[in-house]
Design a protein around this nucleic acid. Sequence first.
DNA 1: TTTTAGCACTCAACACTATCGAGTGCTAAC
DNA 2: GTTAGCACTCGATAGTGTTGAGTGCTAAAA
Lengths: 344, 344
Amino acid sequence: MEMTERKNKILAAVVERYIQTGEPVGSKNLLDSLGLSVSSATVRNEMADLIDMGYLEQPHTSAGRIPSTAGYRYYVENLMTAYDMSPTEKKLIDIKLHETTGEPHAVLERAGNIIADISKCAAISTTPADSEAVIKRIELVPIGTHTAMVVMLTSFGILKTRVIRTDSEITLDIAETFYNIVKANFIGKPACDITIARIQTLALSLGEKALAMTPLLVVLSDLSKMTEKTELLLEGQTNLLGYKEYETNAFELMEFLRRSEPLNRIFTLEKNETGAPSVLIGKEQLYRELQNSTLIFSRYSIGGRQSGALGVVGPTRIDYARLIPCIRYISDVVGIILSDNAED
Amino acid sequence: MEMTERKNKILAAVVERYIQTGEPVGSKNLLDSLGLSVSSATVRNEMADLIDMGYLEQPHTSAGRIPSTAGYRYYVENLMTAYDMSPTEKKLIDIKLHETTGEPHAVLERAGNIIADISKCAAISTTPADSEAVIKRIELVPIGTHTAMVVMLTSFGILKTRVIRTDSEITLDIAETFYNIVKANFIGKPACDITIARIQTLALSLGEKALAMTPLLVVLSDLSKMTEKTELLLEGQTNLLGYKEYETNAFELMEFLRRSEPLNRIFTLEKNETGAPSVLIGKEQLYRELQNSTLIFSRYSIGGRQSGALGVVGPTRIDYARLIPCIRYISDVVGIILSDNAED
DNA sequence: TTTTAGCACTCAACACTATCGAGTGCTAAC
DNA sequence: GTTAGCACTCGATAGTGTTGAGTGCTAAAA
């Protein structure tokens, strides 16, 4: 069976109506919002066809129709007219994002707040990570006689710091040795090169200074490990409690969202060259816990390179037309801010 | 009416039973867990007295009893035998807390995880803040030609950093001027002295260097403001979804917990010299949103001085005997770790 | 005076039934 | 191909009866 213009109209109307109300949509009910001068019986016939085609579902015989996963998919790809964000709206988002310090964590947290606010759903994001990061700079900032802060900057503009207390005093001599080692061994090299094994080898060649230096070098290995690891941020989880689709199983979804591995997996698995957000709808998804939800996300780019991701999770009847452009825009702005921040 | 030994026993049994099951406790039901050889009728008579005295409540005529706020209060203060944490248990907590970097945020996050895990409720904590903090040290770490990190350390061992990008290059000369200004004006002074007004005055005296210096000084004012502001950490919120007392209004409570002002207000208002955790039960509380919950918290001390707080929020039938000692212990350990961290 | 057995009473929870109404599929006429 | 009409379906809602855990009260026993 082929999709006709009328079927398109009806499917779009059902999807939009259902997104609004969350109630199964009946034929009569639909007539109002439909610009067609046909009877409800005709609409019913068409809807029956749409069920055959797999785009609609019926919770039970005497109820209206709701869109199936395939129905949403068809809607998103063929029927939806993306909401056009007004300049004022964009400006507001710009301002809110620029209010932050520009550090990835802060920017993404703010982005999450904005997304949660607009979508009334949960926002997710991951901080940028780069397994191929190159170390640009390492600093040792003395804070006390036995305390110092180690700062590591990588090619991605990711800045990690760690305060360390040592048993032996941090003298000028120690600091100098530290800088020498760092310059000779780490600057300009991949962060993943700083392994414990490497440090042990280095320590051997340090003689009596090994005792004082090792803790400092171990911190470097920790920091480099941190640049490879992303952090998962969640905002507006509680918004989900308002939807009746999550009445019984909000807990399950929320627990799932807290686990970073599966989400990271989803983000990295999804190949998407277009720059448009990825949309994963209901049953399309790999993880059972997400199969009655939709995930809209976009990987943002720092310096032209995809790094972290940000997006929104909600019921399958999420407002696609509104949120897809919105996630795209926020992802772009976040990318710009973080790229700026990464530049020297 | 006076409390007799038997009334005490019965009240304690009702409270403990209700904490376990969440179901109203009936007279017959109670006989098992009660070490008394009396009939259910006697127990009923006693329970009727306890209702008159305000310690028990009845959801409806033909149901069992549940403790009232006053009942819990009496239980906590007179009847409860605090759970004695085993050395192994303590050790485990020690280890988990020491695994962190020792920075307040990290330690408290971990503490929150532990509390959420033990209590199956939500953990709350606030990072240390000190309105009377004195500036101990300020550093300017060059990162690029136009980028630098400003580091501020205050008397509380609170370390705040901020990366800044400037229009004018950060030369050695600029850095030197910065250190001179800082040394002359800020080191050893209260953090709250660094106001925008003060900076404007300073800028006037800097002549042509004002343009380059002002942004750096403004960052200092931001950082000093940050040392005064605490941050609220929440862990294990989703645990609350498992309790039927929050079936309908989990959203309201969770939204309330996200707002830091009221919680900070509660923490600072509560005077408690004993060192034991504060326990705020149900209707005793100021905020309507907490009136069917209990809050157990303790202010931890850094360097002998009360700063932030940490604790747990759950239904009024929270496990007092277990959690009060637990919060106390964790608060002590957190205090020790953060004091260590604050020391130079 | 305190305790207890006994009994009538209460009320949430549950199962069952009837009714309502939004929505359906089908058919025959347009 | 469209539509009016009609019988049908089934969730939701309300009403009814039953059950059972639990109560308060009373009068007798301790």
